[in-house]
Amino acid sequence: MNNNIEPILTGRGLVKRYGRVTALDHADFDLYPGEILAVIGDNGAGKSSMIKAVSGATIPDEGEVMLEGKPVHFTSPIDAREAGIETVYQNLALSPALSIADNMFMGREVRKKGFLGKYMRMLDRPKMEQIARDKLSELGLLTIQNINQTVETLSGGQRQGVAVARAAAFGSKVIILDEPTAALGVKESRKVLELISDVRSRGIPIVLISHNMPHVFEVADRIHIHRLGKRLCVINPKDYSMSDAVAFMTGAKEPT
């Protein structure tokens, strides 16, 4: 990546301790505009802790997070969202008993105009449903017939699609995807990977956390390898093989 370009999201010297466990040990993180950055690392390497620290889900004990060069202090995922960072969590963070439209607009509902919205605080259901439908079809997910069906009636892939569509619809600066293909079949994974490429082509940078090496090497522009609570190295997938990456992340080989 060109050094003249300012990173959009950076973490410097992030530390997070849980009791006697140090999950993050002065970890650094850089995401550049328009790229797909994959984050890989063995279980317990601290990938999730780092992502949580830059997305507001946890507050780091030490260190600094900067968005577009300005320091930010997120105390909740809501703060990060307001700053334009959307995260799709591994558990998807959907409410199964609520409809697709309700889920997509959770926490940022649209109210009706005029008296009904202002004083009766009435939701503008038709408008929210329309936007939800548009967003889903934009991402080629219109196999879902009924926008009012509850999320629990959808398949795993469809749920993933709804969660990604929600992030893509509202994420203005950064989208973070935590293991988006872990629970999916071959074809559904393919759909999600296409979705990721679609989102990048709109110029929004993506952080992809994954254990699936073929997927990582296919879509990532750069690969951030995390080991023992810190960034070990960042590699270009064109210069290294998958077995090199695995060797780095498990400590079998030192990066040069």
Partner: peptide, 8 residues
Amino acid sequence: DAAELSGV
């Protein structure tokens, strides 16, 4: 937890 993460 899901509600919290999705902004409630």
